[in-house]
Amino acid sequence: MSSSATLRTGGHPPTPGRVAVELVVNGVPLAASLDPRRSLLDLLREQLGLTGAKKGCDHGQCGACTVHVDGRRVASCLTPAVQAHGRQVLTIEGLSPAGSPLHPMQQAFIDHDALQCGYCTPGQIMAAVACVAEGHATSPEQIREYMSGNLCRCGAYVGIVAAIEDAAMKMAATTMATAGRSAEMPEARHAAV
C-alpha cells in the first residue's frame, strides 16, 4: 500500500488536493479521487448513493453510521474516506442485496420489532452482526454493553437485545453451513466514482 501523493512541506496554506483511493464496497471494487476531508459516511451516502448508513451526529456519538471495514464495525462518520484505501467496506445494502433473503439479524429485528422509526436501524443491525461475530452476544448483559454504541431514541432496546439473542443462534448455524464463502474475492471490476 503506497501513496502516489507526495508530501509538500511548504506552500502553506495548502490548496485542497485530491487523493487517489481504491476500495471495495459491498464486493464492488471502486476507484475514486477524493477530497481528504470527506468522511467514509459522506462518500457512501453522497457519492455512492448508499444511504443506508445514516448521519445522526457526525462525531462518533450515536452509531447510526456503523458499517464494517475489513469485517469490523466502525463509525463511518469518524473515518476519513481516504483511510478506507485498500479496505473492504460492507454496508447494510451489502448485507442482503436486493432480491436475496434477509440476513438472520434483519429477520430477527422484524420478528422482535426491534425498531420504530428505522433511522438508527441499519447502524444497529451492522453493529449487531459484528457483535455476534466478535463473540459479544453470549448474554443479554453483554449484548447491552456491546450495543451501547448505538443510540435508539425511539427506545427499541428491549427488542434489539431480544433480536440479537435470537439471531446469534441462527447465525451460529448459518456460519457453520457457509464457512468459507466470505473468503471469495469479488469480481475484479472497477467502477469509477
Binding site: 501513496s3 495548502p14 487523493v19
Partner: peptide, 28 residues
C-alpha cells in the same frame, strides 16, 4: 479547513515527513 494528506509507508518515513512538515502537522 483543507489540508494536505499523505500516507506514511514506514516509521522512518513518518518521522521524516512529520519532522519536515512543521508545527501545523498532525498524525492520523
Amino acid at each position: 479547513q483543507p489540508f494536505d494528506y499523505v500516507r506514511a509507508t514506514s516509521v522512518a518515513d513518518a518521522v521524516r515527513a512529520f519532522g519536515a512538515a512543521g508545527p501545523d502537522t498532525r498524525l492520523l
